[in-house]
Amino acid sequence: MGHHNPDSPSHLKHYFHDVNQQYETSKFAMWAFILTEVLTFAGLFVAYIVYRSWYPDMFVDAHKLLDVNKGLMNTIVLITSSLTMALAIWAIQKNNKKLSVVMLVATFIFALVFLGIKYLEYTHKFEVGQLPGEFYSYMGPDAAHLNNPHIFFSIYFIMTGLHGLHVAIGMGLIAWLIYSTQKGNLTSEYYTPMEMIGIFWHLVDLIWIYLFPLFYLIG
């Protein structure tokens, strides 16, 4: 070692030439990671598409058992949280630490609201027996005629569940961001972690943008 330039910033790792190389490398790797995320969900989207094409009528009727209002509310919540996340980065770029923290806290709260609404939806489904797989037991007048609705609910729970898991992970990451920004570790000179977590958070939004119409708004 010993090649450390005394006036290079402390966040610069010794195996990089300069901060810009380090920043661009992290960001590129983040996008490669986004690719893996998209392809993880891809498997589930394929399952959705295949089963929807095999059971078109069941999908249309089973989707009526979902609550559009809650879905729309979550859409609005998530879009707003995406905006506040973007504004947190914008604020830190302008070196406005206080605003940045406020925006991060807002993002965190929106994420919490999202999970809260999901929780209400899930508990209702649990109560009436609209459950995945063999645990499905709902035979109400609007569902008794359906052919294998448990498959619809399997896919619904797996996709929204995996998405919800991402929201929860995102909340953990945002909490950490709040802490480090507050402590002054992130500034307009160095905010790479916020930028990366921001990209992750927008991905969560992006996936919901497709989940919402596919589950709640079928024809």
Partner: peptide, 8 residues
């Protein structure tokens, strides 16, 4: 499965 009402 028995038939249910809308509350399951």
């Amino acid at each position: 499965l028995p038939l249910t009402d809308t509350h399951g």
